[in-house]
Design a protein around this nucleic acid. Structure first.
Lengths: 184, 184
DNA sequence: GGTGCCATGTAACGAGTTACATGATTGG
DNA sequence: CCAATCATGTAACTCGTTACATGGCACC
């Protein structure tokens, strides 16, 4: 399961931390390239513990629910490294919007344009958030250590991804609006 | 289920066709934004038929296995249109490579660079295939009818997607190789 | 003679989603 | 006072993958 390696990586980067923390890290850091529900993460953490790839202990808190904090074990680290060494293929993407575009002639063009605007807005918001992180933390990427350079590259992947969606949305909106005008 | 709408859209664009044809269309036309195994598609087609969203008949062939060819029904078309009208959100992506990048310091840099080169090659191959289609079929997009324009926009999404991955791979390889050199 | 295409399917399993449940604390 | 945050979980279900099965034809 790939999720287990994502969790191991998360614990390798920052530990000890709870299932809750891991979900938050997925959401905040790499939301455009990884997502998991808390149910999935908790389930997986229990399984990883059974396998001995992570260890955990209970932290008693007052005023808050107790939490179970996890660390990666050396077995887990070995497994993570083995996994990194395996060549992986691109993920299958199932993007509804592309299907809608293909049969978009079935509805008024404005419906499609609205959907494109909606997507544009989402990606613009995410792009700005990522660019803020870039501005605040990575002014001089070439001066960074390897670890930070890698984090920066992951961030760059996100920035490019969002910018790419935005550019396409604009291209598509323009083409559809010009098409509409040409009908008058 | 979203797959059912992808199938309906496929049948709307081109019908009658068999489960086999639909899988092929997914693979060929929009492989970077949709994928499904034949098992999934056959299963879904049977369910769509039970619901009355598609109809089918058996075509007897000689020298080849018989096939079941499907068409979208008017109920199915209604459902497809209703679905298009609903606003949809971006898909969750689970991209292993980003995880590997984040913890890439655990292995020799060359391992990560190799993986990046592998991805670069894949996306370059797909980009060239898509650009060939663009060159052969869409020389003058502004002159197209709505249906073709939409097909073109879907193609453009694929082209941008591939080009974006390529650009990032190059950026990443460059940064990692320069980092290696700075250590000498 | 082996590989690949056409064409469809079953069965078992694993991954992921949705709905539901709990309960205190903090902040507007 | 309502919403959000912290923190974890169960149960039912759907979706998707993997492995296995069949069998003729065309091409090199």
């Amino acid at each position: 399961m790939t999720l287990s390696y994502a969790i191991l990586a998360s614990l390798e980067l920052e530990s000890p931390c709870s299932g809750y923390d891991i979900v938050k890290q997925f959401d905040e850091r790499i939301s455009c390239f990884w997502g998991a529900s808390h149910q999935q993460v908790y389930k997986e953490l229990r399984q990883l513990k059974n396998q001995g790839w992570v260890s955990s202990e209970t932290v008693i808190q007052k005023g808050r629910p107790n939490k179970e904090v996890y660390k990666i074990t050396h077995t887990g680290l070995d497994q993570l490294i083995t996994w990194i060494n395996e060549i992986s293929e691109p993920t299958v993407i199932r993007e509804q919007l592309i299907i809608k575009i293909l049969v978009g002639y079935l509805v008024p063009t404005q419906i499609i344009v609205n959907e494109l605007r909606h997507r544009h807005k989402i990606h613009l918001g995410q792009l700005m958030a990522l660019q803020l992180i870039e501005f605040q933390n990575y002014q001089k990427p070439s001066a960074l250590g390897l670890r930070d350079k890698l984090q920066y590259l992951a961030l760059r992947r996100g920035i490019r991804y969002q910018a790419d969606w935005i550019a396409w949305c604009e291209e598509a909106i323009k083409m559809l609006e010009e098409h509409e005008q040409s009908l008058d």
